[in-house]
């Protein structure tokens, strides 16, 4: 897939990026409680303490994951 500027790949789907947006700000926009969110940015796990300081860049691959019921 050709990479378009100003977009990130969020959970496998393209999403227009607000310039300079931090991960914490994105979570607010998505109405997700950061306490329950597990994030992986470009294949690397991201601790919750870094949500506010990480600024998303065009082309980033972001996975937002959470714990669910399982055996």
């Amino acid at each position: 897939m050709a990479e378009r500027s100003g977009e990130i790949l969020l959970n496998g789907r393209p999403r227009i990026l607000t310039p300079g947006q931090s991960l914490a700000q994105l979570l607010v926009e998505l109405e997700l409680d950061p306490r329950w969110v597990v994030a992986e940015l470009n294949g690397e796990p991201l601790g919750r303490d870094r949500f506010g300081s990480v600024t998303l860049q065009p082309g980033d691959r972001l996975e937002l994951v959470r714990p669910v019921a399982g055996g």
Partner: peptide, 15 residues
């Protein structure tokens, strides 16, 4: 517990 991608279209209650 298990980790799963968040379904951004229909959020579910938090385990």
């Amino acid at each position: 517990v298990t980790l799963r991608r968040i379904d951004l279209d229909s959020p579910e209650p938090n385990l």
